[in-house]
Design a binder for these strands. Structure first.
Length: 873
RNA sequence: GCUCGGGUGGCGGAAUGGUAUACGCGAAGGACUUAAAAUCCUUUGAUCGCAAGGUCGUGUGGGUUCGAGUCCCACCCCGAGCACCA
């Protein structure tokens, strides 16, 4: 007998499946009830020149098994694939080889697609999408326009990573360690105008939405921490300087009144944010961030302004690494000549500038309570600042040799003494006239890149409209200040919220989408902080769609993440040229039932996509607020050395090599057999042999019983004990697939195959069922056996999943463990449901086990039906 | 520092509180073969014992329970993520 010819089986069925179009979903599915449908989605790949990685194969095999399983169980399964093809690698390749990224992408996509098909993945290629396809990015641009029109996109100066050698802006990932990933030049910080998306407007909703999702807890926690919601209060500390100490002493009682007399001073108070108003009696100094406006406002009152300015400059140039190394060794400078008043105690406290206070969080200023905050403690110890303890564990004893961050009872806190600190928060907040406030760590999303290979941002800048909008703004402000009239005739109402928010920026008309990326001569960034698009004069210069005057296009492009924010929607309605998606179709497949991909996207792609989806939900374009109901992260596949695979380590496993040597089925099954899907696990080429042997044994088993020369094995009876084990195995395989426990499902298949090998005759019913159960894991060999050996007409994929029937086996034998005083001494077979007394009798009569009774009196017997008996003496 | 995961044979890993080490790899021995590969069979946690059998054993130390890899407490180690967020 010849062993299984993987290569020819793969060739044959790939062609046949394509011809039969068995992977294509029925169009009627898109009008059918949601409960009849399943949406099984992979994170689509970036089609790199390297080709498919074993990590891709792992996640894609898992989703393919699930897709095939659900199809066999009668669901309409949407299982699509596409390409996330905008981004740096293609652009860098273009710069180096002077080849248009489009050509590179095309080549890489073709290669990826070939590899995916070689693995037998059941993708419906008729729904393939590509983020760089104008018919696709038309809608990416369209969503951006909706965000813009709703005032959720705005322009702002932000600090970016800049490589002076490559003359380009770098992402944080490209600037890791403070050096350019491409040329190793030291990265600088630059202020640059960027488009921002107001993801912070959705901060609360993005936290709340997590509750309803079946996601790994760690991803939920990561998102929650990333958004970082804190409830606290803002509290004003008034400022005094020697010049007007009298005035401030006077106004301490009613500091809400506006100070008109002090023209030279802008700041009269510092507003701080704290989550711990209960500790305010222990606030012994204030700290402001280097960027805080009080420093320039009170320039003339700050005696050591030169020193302060020097410190501010130095902190701004600090790299992330320098900042982190200072966590334990804090730096700062006192603002001499000015003081703040602690509103709780009325006492004067000093004001410091230090870069451990972040400018973009809260108000950029804090009250320091060194007794009860580690960071403040470190700072106070270094600069010898006063420390006052206001919380004691029990209201009497004070731990004062180190910071005390636990809860307890208030002391040295005036009329609040004796209260539990947490409970006193609301009353103390009121007492110091604080305002309750919620803060988030999440910051708005920087949405522009000074790059060529991305979606053009569909906006133009028009000087004429800028003037109009600014005039309109002045007018409406005046109106607002005078009297708000209900019938206010807003003459410039034809400007959208976004256009008013960003004077001069005008949305291009939706009928002009897609705004296609023009061809350029050089992809090299210009060095003038703008993208290569800025050099194409006839593309940049346009007529303003609003007023018809001369205008210029935005030349920045969207970031890599934009296209992947909504691709899962487009698969449902990929050819719709009128709408982004038909909501009726959307309703029958969203939200995604199962989304499989790497954990590295926990806070970027998955958060951005939820943000956009939530926005589309608010715009009533989709009917569900969350896009991905169940998320599973496949674990990393490590090299044979247990280290992360990388070219430099030389430990990268290549899927093509395995396919050539052992076949696609072997690769698929091996990757599923390595361990739990979500665990990281090392690659082991020896382990592949085990799977290869298993599949060959299956092949020989069917050859032996069913090839044309052998006698018919049909209509043979098997004993009920076998029947029972067979059904138990099917049950285990079914449940394991449902729970994505593919490693144990494969174990069950292996055990079952041994049982089948032991049979003298092989009933066709069992032969059929076993192959169907194997088919989601190993589709090629299964198809060969199913159609060529067992002579079935239709594909395994179109056949019914083998259901298990536990009733079929009437007599069930169970193994009961026998314990004496909790120690297992033997195992005996019984009929299922056997009574305790009968078991006890059998044990007493047993040659071996019976001896344990001699000289002992039974005190107690614990009996768990069908499982265990424990006899205590 | 904080937040999650996780520590089980030589290795990857199985175990609704109920026979710990399923399944696979590796190793050893054997069969087939002139020989090798492939394939098949047997053995394979440690330890004592000729054997029957005993003792120990899931990172460490305690606890709950008739019974703990699994539950509780404390600690040690490894991995991942976040990192001065007031």
């Amino acid at each position: 007998m010849k062993s299984f010819d993987f290569a020819s089986s793969e060739r044959k069925w790939k062609k046949q499946w394509e011809k039969e179009k068995i992977f294509e979903i029925k169009t009627s599915s898109f009008s059918s009830n949601r409960s009849k449908n399943k949406y099984v989605l992979d994170m689509f790949p970036y089609p790199s020149g390297e080709g498919l990685h074993v990590g891709h194969v792992e996640g894609y095999t898992a989703s393919d098994i699930v897709s095939r399983f659900y199809r066999m169980r009668g669901y309409n399964v949407l299982h699509p694939m596409g390409w996330d093809a905008f981004g740096l690698p293609a652009e860098n390749y273009a710069i180096k080889h002077k080849i248009h990224p489009e050509i590179v992408v095309k080549k890489n996509v073709a290669n990826f697609k070939k590899q995916l098909k070689n693995l037998g993945f059941s993708y419906d290629w008729s729904r393939e999408i590509n983020t760089t396809d104008p018919d696709y990015y038309k809608w990416t641009q369209w969503i951006f326009l909706q965000l813009f029109k709703d005032g959720l996109a705005y322009e702002k100066e932000v600090s970016v990573n800049w490589c002076p050698s490559c003359k380009t802006v770098l992402s944080d990932e490209e600037a890791e360690g403070g050096v350019c990933a491409r040329c190793s030049t030291k990265v600088q910080r630059r202020e640059l105008k960027q488009w921002m998306l107001k993801i912070t407007a959705y901060a609360d909703k993005l936290i709340e939405g997590l509750d309803s999702l079946n996601w790994p807890q760690r991803v939920k926690t990561m998102q929650k921490n990333w958004i970082g919601k804190s409830e606290g209060a803002t509290i004003r500390f008034s400022i005094i300087s020697p010049i007007d100490a009298d005035f401030n002493a006077d106004k301490r009682g009613n500091d809400t009144k506006k100070n008109q007399s002090s023209g030279s001073r802008e700041s009269e108070f510092v507003e701080i944010f704290t989550t711990r108003p209960d500790t305010i009696f222990g606030a012994t100094y204030l700290v402001v961030a280097p960027e805080h406006k009080i420093i320039s406002d009170l320039k003339s009152s700050i005696k050591n302004f030169d020193e302060v300015q020097k410190y501010v400059k130095k902190s701004k140039n600090k790299s992330d690494q320098e900042r982190i190394s200072e966590i334990k060794n804090k730096t700062g400078v006192e603002l001499k000549g000015i003081k703040a008043i602690n509103p709780a105690t009325g006492k004067e406290i000093s004001i410091w500038v230090a870069d451990y206070v972040l400018p973009y969080y809260g108000t950029g200023a804090i009250m320091a309570v060194p007794a009860h905050d580690q960071r403040d403690w470190d700072f106070a110890k270094k600069f010898n600042l006063p420390i006052i303890f206001v919380i004691s564990p029990d209201g009497k004893n004070v731990i004062d040799d180190k910071v005390y961050e636990e809860d307890g009872v208030l002391i040295s806190s005036g009329k609040f003494n004796g209260q539990k600190n947490r409970e006193a928060i609301p009353t103390i907040t009121d007492f110091v006239k604080g305002k309750k406030e919620i803060q988030f760590k999440l910051r708005d999303w920087i949405f522009s890149r000074q790059r060529y290979w991305g979606e053009p941002i569909p906006l133009v800048f028009c000087e004429h409209c800028a003037a109009q909008v600014n005039a309109y703004k002045v007018r409406t402000n005046m109106e607002d200040n005078q009297r708000k009239s209900a019938s206010n005739p807003r003459k410039s109402a034809e400007f959208s919220k976004g256009e008013i928010l960003n004077p001069g920026w005008i949305a291009i008309e939706e009928k002009d989408l897609p705004l296609k990326l023009p061809k350029v001569k050089s992809y090299q960034p210009t060095g003038s902080l703008s993208s290569p698009l800025a050099g194409i004069k006839n593309w940049v210069n346009v007529k303003c769609p609003h007023c018809g005057n001369a205008a210029k296009r935005e030349t920045n492009t969207m970031p890599q993440w934009a296209g992947s924010c909504w691709y899962y929607l487009r698969y449902i309605d990929p050819k719709n040229s009128q709408k982004i998606i038909d909501i009726k179709k959307e309703k029958s497949f969203m939200p995604v039932d199962l989304y499989i991909g790497g954990v590295e996207h926990a806070v970027l792609h998955l958060l951005y996509a939820r943000f956009w989806h939530r926005f589309l939900f608010d715009k009533k374009i989709v009917k569900d607020p969350e896009p991905f109901f169940r998320l599973v992260n496949q674990g990393l596949i490590l090299g044979t050395d247990g280290e992360k695979m990388s070219k430099s380590r030389g430990n990268v496993a290549n899927p093509d090599d395995v396919i050539n040597e052992f076949g696609a089925d072997t690769l698929r099954m091996y990757e599923m057999f390595m361990g739990p899907l979500e665990d990281s696990k090392p690659w082991n080429t020896k382990g592949i042999l085990g799977i290869s042997r298993f599949l060959n044994r299956v092949w020989f088993l069917y050859q032996k019983h069913f090839n044309s020369k052998s006698k018919k094995s049909d209509s043979q009876k098997v004993n009920s004990d076998f029947e029972n084990r067979f059904n138990q195995s099917l049950k285990k395989i079914t449940e394991d697939i449902e729970n994505l426990r593919f490693n144990t499902a494969i174990s069950a298949l292996m055990i079952l195959s041994k049982e089948l090998e032991a049979l003298d005759s092989f009933p066709k019913e069992h032969a059929q069922k076993f192959i169907l159960a194997l088919s989601p894991f190993a589709p090629f060999i299964s198809e060969s056996i199913w159609r060529d050996v067992l002579k079935n007409k239709k594909s395994t994929l179109l056949s019914k999943w083998p259901e298990y029937d536990l009733k079929k086996s009437s007599v069930k034998i169970v193994k009961i463990a026998v314990q004496f005083n909790g120690k297992t001494r033997g195992v005996m077979d019984f009929k299922s449901g056997v009574a305790k007394e009968e078991v006890l009798k059998s044990i007493k009569n047993n040659d071996k086990l019976g001896n344990y009774f001699s000289g002992n009196e039974i005190q107690r017997v614990i009996f768990v039906p069908d499982r265990i008996i424990n006899i205590l003496f």
